[in-house]
Design a protein around this nucleic acid. Sequence first.
DNA 1: ATAAACTTTCATTTTTTTTTGAAACTTTAA
DNA 2: TTAAAGTTTCAAAAAAAAATGAAAGTTTAT
Lengths: 167, 167
Amino acid sequence: MEFKEAKNKFVQTWGALGSQWGINKTMAQIHALLMVSHEAVSMEDIMEELQISRGNASMNLRALMDWGIVYKEYKAGERREFFTAEKDLDELAVKISRERSKREIKPALKVLKEVSSITSDNTAEEKHFVDQTTKLYDFVLKADNMLDKMTEYKDNWLAKLVVKIMK
Amino acid sequence: MEFKEAKNKFVQTWGALGSQWGINKTMAQIHALLMVSHEAVSMEDIMEELQISRGNASMNLRALMDWGIVYKEYKAGERREFFTAEKDLDELAVKISRERSKREIKPALKVLKEVSSITSDNTAEEKHFVDQTTKLYDFVLKADNMLDKMTEYKDNWLAKLVVKIMK
DNA sequence: ATAAACTTTCATTTTTTTTTGAAACTTTAA
DNA sequence: TTAAAGTTTCAAAAAAAAATGAAAGTTTAT
């Protein structure tokens, strides 16, 4: 396999993986492209390489910047804007999990708390509902906190977590 | 908020959360419904409660069973099939992460390995590509293994993990 | 062996999501 | 201050994903 083929395969695969995790294909592809580019890439070049429209490129670049995983770069003497991806993978993981937590998990937790707080008649049905949603709330909260700590402490997370728990 | 309203809100929220994570809305809704039902539910009732067609119900129930998080149940003297969800949340987490790993992460890892193994000319561009995809491979592999261990050991995972690392 | 009760499948339709592209907007250099 | 070079926006179109429903398929009781 030669370079161009490999690069293309990587971009396609990353795009497909994104889709399966609820991230739009183009957004994931742009990210993939920038991840493996050794220097900043112009919008023009992104459009060309992924065969997408200007609007699509613009909107998805904005989204990636909102996520904090792609940066704009200005080159001296160049009018155009260039883009780079966060290339440090620990940092990338931190940012992705922060955003997903903020956008999706936290709102879901809020609802779980609400629905688990209904004042139940004591039918078995209602008891089971309250019980199950309460458990779910606790579980999701725990998982969310755990992920937060793992990413916050980065590669050192296990050691630091143990220290924190032991003291 | 009364029971019915709470139940509906829970089902809708779970459905929306599913969508955002690449799981089809109905599939997530059926799962939500079964999670909070204290007894097995017939397809008829699922269709009724979620206002969906028979085909839709059938296909998504099959998908949920393929994931191993919903079970068929036969009631004595009843012709119809009834369905229940895995209600133990640790077990649920194990199964979901196993399936996603098998379906999505493992294939992505395979591709990452392939593309990071190209015999690079030594242009800076190609070197960076190989370097970056290799790092990504290592990272994803590590994360996948970690998740596997965390879920395998369930709530006890931290202790067991530490033991394993220390010895 | 039959038919009633139920489930599955899949071509078609509907809905949702993504993409396009052209107009509006912004920035910069002269 | 103007126009060239570039970017953003958003209504409309296209594509992708999900849902429908009717026909085909199963199972079970008699």
